[in-house]
Design a protein around this nucleic acid. Structure first.
Lengths: 303, 303
DNA sequence: CAGGGTTACGACGAACGTAAACATT
DNA sequence: AATGTTTACGTTCGTCGTAACCCTG
């Protein structure tokens, strides 16, 4: 019934493991199990022999695999055909994203989109929150992805939530803070602190948190203001001080243990990312496709 | 993403109407609209030009139609292939159903099942509630469909709800009662009344209702006891009296206005139909397929 | 104990039917 | 009025992630 199930099935058939497929699909193991169980129920046959060290296709599974690849190929080919029909080529789409998502999560999504629609041209620009809002208002980009909330945008724009992230304080591995789980605003006041430039969404969210506790940036021990997230990361890794980020933007560093993340003691602070685009006026086919792609619940924009 | 949507789409493309397709699929119009909207969203194109007197395929729609037929054909062929693999042929399935569903709803489902699995042999027997329970216990049928509740069955049987229906009093079109919506038990006591034979599930449910109000069948003005629902219908249409049925069993007569249905004044009485089959022991492939077919939420057993 | 799989449960989104609205003949 | 489609809303079912559990090297 469902082509998603076929895709999951085919991937498992190739890698011979539910959990490997789950990682590749950015899904949990139980979700993958459920998909296969559902497919097996629909077809009325067992597809895999579950073995301790992995899974193996049954005879029925091999039959389904042959058909599934054909069906999926047809589906793909249909979408390609529709793209050419809609004139998806020769239209350029400009996406402006803030650095948190734009540098670390979106490139993957843009890559996936490019794979799906090879004739489409998408350009991704990284800018800070203020700049993106300006570009949207001036109609210089078709789609923006920024941190909320977005009161400053008047009508004529559609705003959709695409991701939630938490604000974290990042520290070098050799920092004494690396052992800790949380840090209080009080402790932050005395620590050497590195900031992003004004206009950054993370900085803005942090100022909001400070204000909620009757504090301001001036009361911190700011040792540097840097223009990009990468510069901030390097500075923190060099032991120049603590800084501020979203968990997503340092995901790979956390895995490599080249940075450590601390939650704020007062409770974790959520940053919501929104997709913003102009409504009412003409939207190119590429624009519509991209918006649909990013907001479709199945798609994972975080790789 | 979803092959159901493709089927709905293909049917609409052929009959050129959402509502006609909805009737053929036993779905509501809005449900069909929603399916197409969802498919259009997924593909990012309009599939139909909505016109006042119906709908017409767009250019994109014609492309999708060509692919959809191929995809659905592949899917069908895959299921056929799996059937032959499982040895679905040469196995016979005996289903025993009570007359309410067995005569008026299930034949359609059995027909659909036969279309889907041409090599499977299904035989449908109509019997009353008591007989079916006996046949299940003696293992003379694999699947039973009877009215609940089912306290008399011991363990070793799986019981699944398949349909809910309401008890109605049926009257001839020329009867004065045909104008009314409801009838009270008090009024029923004096009216000439026709009954099904003992052992019928409808009769049993009705006796339960009477008992709840401190009444019994003896206090009614019973003019005949007939052995089949069709005999009862004819007698009622001939004006011999009122009788008892489930709404489903007289669905087509209600549409043709050859019978009228009254609810009981005390509140409508629900009759739940259950699918029953033996667990633990061996189940043939046909049996499993049929159970899965009947209980799959998408399938409509009422035509 | 680690790796691979399932089950249990709560949350969110999809799909349905009913009812009402709107548009066209 | 009658037909055909959409919108709105409440219910039900499917899918996801988290957490816990079972089994094997």
């Amino acid at each position: 019934m469902n082509s998603n199930q076929l895709e999951v099935f085919c991937l498992i058939a190739r890698v011979k493991s539910f959990s490997k497929a789950a990682r590749l699909l950015h899904l949990s193991q139980p979700a993958v199990s459920a998909q296969i169980r559902s497919l097996e129920d629909h077809l009325g046959v067992e597809l895999f022999e579950r073995q301790p060290q992995g899974v193996e296709l049954t005879a029925a599974g091999r039959v389904v695999y042959r058909y599934a690849t054909q069906i999926l190929a047809l589906w793909d080919s249909m979408e390609k055909h529709l793209d050419s029909l809609c004139g998806l080529h020769n239209e350029e789409l400009l996406v402006a994203a803030s650095s948190c998502l734009g540098n670390y999560a979106l490139p993957c999504a843009v890559y996936d989109f490019g794979q799906k629609h090879p004739t489409a041209k998408v350009r991704l620009e990284i800018a800070n929150r203020q700049q993106i809002i300006g570009q949207l208002q001036d109609n210089r980009v078709q789609v923006g992805i920024v941190e909320g909330p977005l009161e400053e945008l008047d009508g004529g724009f559609k705003i959709k939530e695409v991701a939630r992230d938490t604000l974290v304080i990042i520290a070098a591995p050799q920092s004494p803070w690396a052992e800790r789980q949380t840090i209080s605003l009080e402790d932050l006041r005395t620590e050497p602190f590195i900031l992003r430039e004004k206009g950054s969404g993370v900085r803005r969210a942090f100022e909001q948190v400070l204000a909620d506790h009757g504090l301001s940036l001036e009361e911190l021990n700011i040792t540097a203001e840097l223009g990009s997230m990468d510069a901030v990361k390097s500075a923190v890794q060099a032991g120049l001080g603590l800084s501020l980020s979203t968990r997503l933007a340092v995901k790979s560093e956390l895995r490599r243990h080249s940075l450590y993340a601390l939650e704020l003691a007062g409770g974790s602070v959520t940053i919501t990312h929104y997709l913003v685009y102009r409504t009412g006026c003409y939207q190119s086919a590429v624009t519509r496709k991209f918006i649909q792609f990013i907001t479709s619940p199945g798609e994972q924009i975080f790789c």
